[in-house]
Design a protein around this nucleic acid. Structure first.
Lengths: 195, 195, 195, 195
DNA sequence: TATGAATGAGAGTTCATTCAT
DNA sequence: TATGAATGAACTCTCATTCAT
């Protein structure tokens, strides 16, 4: 059913806008339909239910997100460089789409436990990319080999996520990308062998 | 005035249990009242409205949380030790109260933006404690002095929070406290001067 | 938008019945919906809220009321005859619709001040009709020209209203229309030039 | 039980003030108690329930009202003069107590049917005074003897009541007493034999 | 495919009254 | 007499989803 027809993307984009501008709990299906320029009932020709819109939204956007990050990372040689590219791309992509930043950092977190579990499923793709960088770093000897991959991944994701969330909550007043260097330094120091 | 009468705490403790066991959106006032052993109307003799219960809950619990952490930290000499104590106490307190862990890591985050802003106000007390440790570390020369305090604080909080949340989402299957040493190592490496 | 669709009138008629039979404070929206044969939510497709049902009810019914009275009055020549028709039509219309009589004389008066102010707005249409009769009478020389129009209008409306209310409170045990002649006589004597 | 102790009157006067200033539906028992300077529970030592406060209020005030009117009327010779005194006193007493005017003309009418029936019981005392004047007028030959006493009484009461209510609704902007002469004229013309 | 009118379940909060002190 | 903490019943309105057209 869920075909990648124009209307499918149209509805998802409408959902991002409506949620960003009205907040999660004020994003009624009828509002999304209106924003998308379709009737309420039409939504249900493309999505099973409201939750399905949100999960699909996250899948679509996170899919693009991961794709772009993987492209960037490929061109990097060392694990440290790859981590740098990951942070930079993560920051850039969200800084470039304010609506999306609000939706992923603030609004979608208000969803119930069940929906958040499904979102976490999608998030695993991102976390796998992080894991790969860490393992690469250990294999190449850049990172200390007693590092616990899961903890390292949680540190990377937790740090980046917290920084972006604070930035969104402060209404994106300062440039996010400029923090890349420092954040990268802090994280790398945590992993790297001391020389 | 909202005095710390027995019934006040009784209702807050009931709220923690009800929210943890039923989820944020299924935690009706009547359920909390029943759990607390009072009539629905009695709730409103101690709290202005439902939101007030939740903010008060967070204030009370976070207050105790910060108090206990500050006691532990005082007895530590170095900034590194203080950070160790902070992580250990944070992990221990949540590991010791499964209900509270669920409520703070998962359920309370489903609240709307307004309530989350008020919760963030309370959270600032915790973040100030972290800040103090970082500044101490810089002053004593344990930490590199080019460290950005805000980013370091976000790294510490983001990392700890992500670890605890994952742990709660995995239904607290593995011991949290045992991670203290490794987490501390990762973070300290990020801050410490290399020798 | 509030179009005069069948369902709009259907709900208003249901409201009259429910309020007359249960009383103002026992006329829950769900009861009105049931009586109208629609779902609770449907009410809100046609009315903004409960108060809007009541104001609309009064507007609709008073609108018809005034229309019918104006038709009757037109065919009368003298001011005295016009007044006679007004009283007669007023009595007849309420005597013909017991439910409506109860609602307008007893139940709707229990509404709060704000709603009553809005009802009074609607009532002005009726009072204007009365005023016109009085002014006509003065102009044609039937009525004494030192008469204070406002007081005369208050006498006419106050008298009619009090008579109808008493009649409703006495459970409409005696025929209302038969009083027309006497009431008219009393009022006209108040206004007419003595010969 | 209902002894005329100071506290009994104290509570009734508090009720008048609270209802006048807050409106019928915002006049909670607790507010009346506070205004009277007693505890909520104390109210129930002097009144059976909330309705009893309102009926008693009406009884007390209407009692004084009738007493004063009867005193004034006694000194008048003709029925016409008696009617004049009645109107004048009615207007004066309400003009002298703005709170009471609001309560009797606007707020108490929002009570439910049952309470209004009990209030009407009390009102009968007033209506009897009116009746007596009418009968006197007929007996002395001042008034036409084909007059229907009930209708005449309804005309008198309806007219006066409507005038006072409009005056209260217009926030008592113009002097009420000055209308006495004209109102009296209108009514008397209705009843008097033409010469 | 597309529409949009209709559905109906579900919960926070107030306040008159009681009763142990 | 006097207190005031505690009680608990009661109701409007929203919004995801359906289905006849």
């Amino acid at each position: 059913m869920k075909q990648k027809k124009p209307k499918y993307k149209q509805i998802i984009d409408a959902a991002v806008i409506v949620i960003a501008e009205n907040g999660y709990h004020q994003a009624q299906v009828s509002k999304i339909a209106k924003q998308a320029g379709v009737a309420d009932g039409t939504i249900y020709l493309y999505f099973k239910n409201k939750e399905d819109i949100l999960v699909s939204l996250f899948q679509e956007k996170m899919g693009e997100f991961i794709e772009k990050i993987e492209v960037e990372i490929k061109s990097a040689e060392t694990a440290a460089e790859k981590l740098y590219k990951l942070i930079k791309t993560h920051f850039s992509l969200l800084a470039a789409d304010h609506h999306l930043a609000i939706v992923t950092q603030l609004e979608l977190r208000q969803s119930n436990k069940e929906l958040r579990l499904r979102i976490n499923e999608v998030l695993k793709g991102y976390l796998n990319v992080v894991d790969k960088i860490i393992r690469t770093g250990i294999e190449t000897g850049e990172f200390r080999d007693e590092i616990d991959t899961r903890l390292a991944r949680q540190m990377i994701f937790g740090t980046i996520d917290e920084i972006v969330t604070t930035w969104v909550m402060n209404e994106q007043k300062y440039p996010l990308s400029e923090q890349t260097q420092k954040v990268h330094q802090l994280l790398i120091n945590g992993f790297a062998k001391s020389n």
